[in-house]
Design a protein around this nucleic acid. Sequence first.
DNA 1: TCGAGTGGGAACCTTTTGGTAACCACCCCC
DNA 2: GGGGGTGGTTACCAAAAGGTTCCCACTCGA
Lengths: 118, 118
Amino acid sequence: MHAHTMPAKKARFIPLSDRKAYHRFEDVIGCKWSTLVVAAVSQGVTRPGELERYIPGISTKVLNERLRKLVDFQVLSRTEQSGLPARVDYALTDNGTKLAALLEQVRLLNAQHPDPAS
Amino acid sequence: MHAHTMPAKKARFIPLSDRKAYHRFEDVIGCKWSTLVVAAVSQGVTRPGELERYIPGISTKVLNERLRKLVDFQVLSRTEQSGLPARVDYALTDNGTKLAALLEQVRLLNAQHPDPAS
DNA sequence: TCGAGTGGGAACCTTTTGGTAACCACCCCC
DNA sequence: GGGGGTGGTTACCAAAAGGTTCCCACTCGA
């Protein structure tokens, strides 16, 4: 235990590893549209233009930013196809597949509960 | 199927119910510190002052905003104890317990992957 | 009067975020 | 020259978010 003067069952602070993990999750998924991009790719929509049309309301700029960040965080992988016009495919990594499964469960959870009263 | 001229297996847009669920998730969890607040409550830290000390870096103002929002979204419940000084406890609802379990899995997922190269 | 504890809010400010509009690259065709 | 397609970036801006600082309420004790 890292808190040598506290009761053994209660830490003084939330563990640093927890903090890092949750802040990282915030960085990856906390941004608007990120969950929808991951969900869309897991539903088989893999090309940028298709994603832009499939997700109403998203802008080209934000879509590209999310894709880049999701690739950086190894949730998605990016593959350029040969030939023209240019063609790119995004796909879930192993890590991304697991995250998408968790997001799917969150979606089901949310579907069971109405919005809060406004 | 709602797209009567598209191939049956590919919808034109991500379903509205999906969009609503994911946007709701963004609202609840997308804000900085929300995941850490839920995690801390699930680890048994239930009082506002304790939460503030347990989560380094969080401000009183933001903690209170997150708590209010998490109560509004029925992730947490709030109970005022009788007596003085004032004492309040927050607890996970059934819905919140399920969400916390999912966040715990996300945390484990993240723990297995290093940060992206900067 | 001061200190302490509990819980919580508002004004102000800086920083961050997301959208708009225009632009870029590579091609094709008229 | 114009149109179209693919994919992607940048400047600018308004809005939102989060932190700081100070304040409020209720009590108790010195």
